[in-house]
Amino acid sequence: MPNLVTMGAMMQCVPFGAAPSSLIVIPKGTPVTAPAMLAATVMDFAPIVNIPPFGVCTSLANPTVAAATAAALGVLTPMPCIPATVGPWQPGALKVKIGAFAALSDTSICNCAYGGVIKITMPGQFITTVT
């Protein structure tokens, strides 16, 4: 069963991010987990605001990586990651909502415009199970 994702959940950009990152959840009202932690929704997908960089990026679809690689005569040259999410996390929790939006579960993914898939590797808590 999926777990509810909260502030500080660990994420990874597969396969292009070099380092994990921690989800940032902006307060939307009363925390919904015990102990009181800020729960995430599918709408917590904004680059930098919610999804910090993953170290360096190795995707050639990333314009900075492509330019650096071209300048290095074709030798793959990783560049700093700036996530380029293309939409909300999918799928969200089917039955749990926070305000008007589905809660974020640890089985949700978020796609990056450069070809990476952002996945939750540790949900931030293991108390509430959602469907």
Rank of each mutant, 00 (worst) to 15 (best):
C112L: 12
I109F: 08
G29I: 09
C112S: 00
P35N: 03
A93M: 07
T129H: 12
G99R: 04
V25Y: 04
A66M: 13
G115K: 00
L38N: 14
I82G: 05
K97C: 08
M10T: 13
A70T: 13
G8C: 10
N3V: 03
A40P: 05
T129G: 09
P27A: 04
A93P: 04
C81P: 05
Q90N: 13
S105V: 08
G116P: 11
T69M: 05
P83T: 07
V14E: 01
G29Q: 09
D44P: 06
F101Q: 04
T121Y: 08
T131H: 14
I26K: 02
P80I: 10
V5L: 00
A102I: 09
I24G: 02
A46W: 04
T41H: 04
D106E: 04
K97M: 12
A39W: 02
I26E: 11
A113V: 07
S108K: 03
A46V: 13
I48Q: 13
M7T: 00
G99M: 10
M11T: 10
M10D: 07
T131E: 14
K119V: 15
V96T: 15
G74A: 06
P2K: 07
P88E: 06
S59F: 03
I26N: 06
L76G: 00
I120P: 05
L73D: 11
G124P: 05
P80R: 12
T121N: 05
P52D: 10
I26T: 15
F126D: 15
V5K: 00
I51G: 08
L104I: 14
L73F: 11
V14D: 06
A66E: 09
C112A: 03
I109N: 01
T33S: 15
Q90M: 15
T107E: 09
I98N: 01
T129P: 03
F101V: 03
N111E: 12
A103F: 11
V96G: 02
V14S: 02
A18F: 11
A70S: 07
M7G: 06
A84D: 08
V117I: 13
I24F: 01
V130D: 14
P83M: 10
V49P: 03
F45N: 07
T121D: 09
P52I: 08
M79E: 02
G55K: 05
P53A: 11
D106F: 06
A66D: 04
A84Y: 04
A113R: 06
V5Q: 00
T69R: 01
T58M: 05
L94C: 09
T107W: 05
A61V: 07
C81D: 11
G17N: 00
L23H: 08
S105D: 04
Y114D: 01
F126C: 09
N3K: 02
A40Y: 14
V75Y: 08
T121S: 14
L23P: 09
M7E: 15
V25E: 07
F126R: 12
P63G: 04
N111L: 13
K119Y: 10
I26L: 07
P31T: 04
L76N: 00
P80W: 11
C13Y: 03
I26D: 01
P80F: 10
Q125I: 02
G116W: 06
L4H: 02
A18T: 15
K95V: 14
V42L: 02
L38I: 08
P83F: 12
C110L: 15
T121K: 07
L60R: 02
A100H: 03
P2Q: 13
